Amino acid sequence: MSSQVEDGSGSGGGSGGGRYRREDVARAAGVKVRNLRYYQERGLLPPPRREGRIAWYSDDHLTRLRLISDLLGRGYTVNGIGELLHAWEQGGGLSELLGLEREMTRDWVQEEPVTLSRGELRELFGPTATAADTRRAAELGYVTIDGDLVTYPNRRLLESTLALVRQGVPLAEILDAGEFVQAQAAAVADRFVGLFRRYVIDAAGMDGSAGPEGLERLSATQLQHITAAVAALRPVAGEVVATEFARAMARRVDTEVAELLRTEQ
């Protein structure tokens, strides 16, 4: 699958370094392509930079689109979002707000997508993988299906799955394990986000139940404080989870090896 995303000079509407075609920025932000023009018409999104017939969007466009989607998901109207963005721009806090959103969402997931035809997928996994497995993988978010094409958002996850299958683990069992891990990961994420909200966001004076007027009161200084906290705490959650999982695996493997040695005696 060819990528339309480039690194290089910034594009219109911001200083972000990435360059995205219309379809790619919409896909990355999780919005429909037609929404881009609508947001531009409503003044929520700056126009892209044009080079000939190509419209290039920047990282700042992507960040703003994600912010718009988040606010829509929280019940704000398009007019309300426009008023918020205008208030932040007038108060000089919009760059801090966009920086906060960018800091809070970047780097959590680093994925390299892989797109295969269904035939290529059968060659990789062999006869043990069924159409039902593919449908379930899509339900769990491990793949997206577009006609005859199946896209894995994460190449490493695909390679890990293949390694298990080649060791004889049924794909259905791997998907069961994946669903279990998703539930546990969601619980861990909820715990860390709860701690962050209680001791960082609320401490900065941002009540989690605040409406638009509360968001308008969030000053540039508060936004900078929260952004700095996100940058400092970002590695912590991942390190804690990775370390505890490694320790748990070591204990569990030690127990299994000891059991095997006893059965050999």
Rank of each mutant, 00 (worst) to 15 (best):
P46D: 10
R50N: 14
E51A: 02
E51K: 06
E51I: 04
R53H: 14
W56Y: 15
W56P: 03
W56A: 05
W56Q: 07
W56R: 04
W56G: 03
W56F: 14
S58C: 13
D59L: 08
D60Y: 13
D60S: 14
T63N: 12
R64K: 10
L65Y: 00
L65R: 10
R66M: 13
L67C: 01
I68G: 09
I68L: 06
S69W: 01
D70W: 00
D70V: 13
D70S: 15
D70R: 03
L71H: 10
L71A: 12
G73Y: 04
G73M: 00
R74T: 11
G75F: 03
G75E: 03
G75D: 02
G75M: 04
N79A: 13
N79F: 03
G80E: 07
G80C: 02
G80F: 01
G82N: 01
E83C: 04
L85D: 07
L85N: 03
H86A: 02
A87T: 14
A87Y: 06
A87W: 10
W88M: 13
E89C: 06
E89A: 03
Q90K: 12
G91E: 06
G91P: 09
G93A: 15
G93I: 02
S95M: 07
S95T: 09
L97H: 02
L98N: 08
L98P: 14
G99F: 14
G99A: 01
L100E: 07
L100M: 07
E101N: 04
R102W: 06
R102H: 05
E103W: 11
E103L: 09
T105C: 02
R106W: 04
R106M: 00
R106T: 10
D107V: 10
W108M: 01
Q110W: 05
Q110K: 01
E111A: 08
E111I: 01
E111C: 04
E111Y: 00
E111Q: 15
E111G: 05
E111M: 00
E112C: 01
P113K: 05
P113Y: 00
V114F: 08
T115E: 11
L116Q: 07
S117D: 13
R118F: 12
G119W: 00
G119M: 00
E120C: 04
R122C: 06
E123R: 15
E123G: 14
E123L: 11
G126T: 13
G126R: 02
G126A: 06
T128P: 09
A129N: 05
A129M: 15
T130R: 15
T130C: 12
A131E: 15
A131F: 05
A132I: 12
D133L: 13
D133H: 15
T134G: 09
T134A: 11
R135W: 11
R135H: 13
R136Y: 08
R136P: 02
A137E: 12
A138N: 08
E139S: 09
E139H: 05
E139V: 12
L140Q: 08
L140C: 12
G141E: 12
Y142I: 08
T144F: 02
D146T: 14
D146W: 01
